[in-house]
């Protein structure tokens, strides 16, 4: 267990089943120093994005360098709790998820047209059937709530 404290981000590295889990907290930007992350590599790297609040284009570049470096030496990478901003990068930017990487869990925005309630629902990739978001009930009014994004685009990372 170690804590990497950098200018814009704090990363807790904890030992998990099969490797290390990186718990990210803060912003992924040009201040990210990937050398410290690479130092804590393991056979399986679980990345928990739950508390990432911002990612910019420079941060994307640095992140890609990191995942490429560790996957090139054989580390398997799994993403957990990806918030919407991470899912957008995953969909848009080739290389954000390396070839042997996968997105295990992610948040999907849900919007209820009846009460205008916004929900962030944690979904498990393995539960989905194709690029179709499950229909859920609004946590506020119980009416039907739909995914608040272009479904096929948002779930672009799910194999067809």
């Amino acid at each position: 267990m170690a804590t990497i404290t950098q200018k814009s981000i704090e990363i807790d590295v904890v030992v998990c089943d099969g490797g290390n889990e990186f718990k990210l907290k803060g912003e992924i930007n040009e201040d990210l120093l990937i050398e410290e992350l690479i130092y804590h590599k393991s056979d399986l790297i679980k990345v928990n994005f739950k508390e990432v609040v911002m990612i910019n284009s420079c941060g994307v570049s640095e992140w890609i360098k990191f995942v490429e470096a560790v996957s090139n030496i054989g580390s398997k990478i799994q993403y957990f709790n990806c918030p919407q901003i991470i899912v957008q990068q995953v969909n848009m930017v080739t290389g954000f998820v390396p070839g042997n990487g996968s997105i295990e869990t992610f948040y999907a925005p849900y919007f209820c047209d009846d009460c205008e309630n916004e929900d962030k629902i944690l979904l498990k990739s393995s539960d989905l059937k194709g690029r179709t978001a499950p229909e859920l009930k609004c946590t506020k009014c119980g009416e039907l709530s739909e995914i608040d994004a272009m479904e096929d685009i948002y779930l672009n990372f799910i194999p067809e």
Binding site: S61, V93, T94, G95, D152, I153
Partner: peptide, 18 residues
């Protein structure tokens, strides 16, 4: 409506200069 729009989400490649 929101169903009237689509994203051009295919033919994706790496960023330029990468």
């Amino acid at each position: 409506t929101k169903k009237s729009i689509q994203a051009l989400g295919k033919a994706l490649g790496r960023r330029l200069g990468d």
